[in-house]
């Protein structure tokens, strides 16, 4: 990742232009050419520096919900349970953390019923209880990190 990549990542975390030639517009802003911008984004995605390039969807605006959940998974069983949890499309993220509750994941679904059904299915398949931490108040969310 070089300085141009960092500039590009910081720029692309803002609003991507909704115009006919959005990559060209970004390229002109950064003093690059359109094909270079596209090729760099392809490489950043392939290298895993970017996990995605597209819209960030707010399911709450669709009547849905996000829910943080956690499990205490025995180490020997960790990979099996991770595969079970990750298999559900409603699981948006999943992180291993160094705590007795060592697996923390976020569910996102278009209805609260979908969240409940997914939680029950995860418990049934994993054979481990899930603790849920739905947000009661949101004080702050920042969606950008500087490269």
């Amino acid at each position: 990742m070089d300085e141009s990549d960092k500039m590009l990542i910081n720029t692309l975390q803002g609003g991507f232009p909704l115009t006919e030639r959005p990559f060209l517009e970004v390229a002109q802003r950064l003093g690059l050419d359109e094909q270079t911008v596209i090729a760099r984004i392809e490489k950043l995605l392939a290298d895993g520096v970017l996990s995605r390039f597209g819209p960030l969807i707010q399911v709450e605006r669709l009547g849905g919900a996000f829910c943080l959940a956690a499990m205490a998974v025995p180490q020997a069983d960790f990979e099996r349970v991770a595969a079970i949890v990750n298999d559900f499309p409603a699981v948006a993220h999943n992180y291993a953390r160094d705590h007795r509750l060592n697996m923390w994941f976020v569910l996102a679904a278009e209805t609260p019923q979908d969240i409940d059904a997914t939680l029950r299915a995860i418990e049934a398949r994993a054979g481990i209880p899930v603790l849920t931490f739905p947000k009661e108040r949101e004080y702050f969310v920042e969606l950008k990190l500087s490269a």
């Binding site: 990742m1 803002g14 895993g48 995605r52 390039f53 960030l56």
Partner: peptide
């Protein structure tokens, strides 16, 4: 544009892997 204005889309752009940054 309309989905952004309604807040269904928070933003369009790059979602970085924070470890990689």
């Amino acid at each position: 544009q309309e989905l952004l204005a309604r807040g269904v889309i928070r933003r369009i752009g790059a979602i970085p892997n924070h470890y990689a940054l």
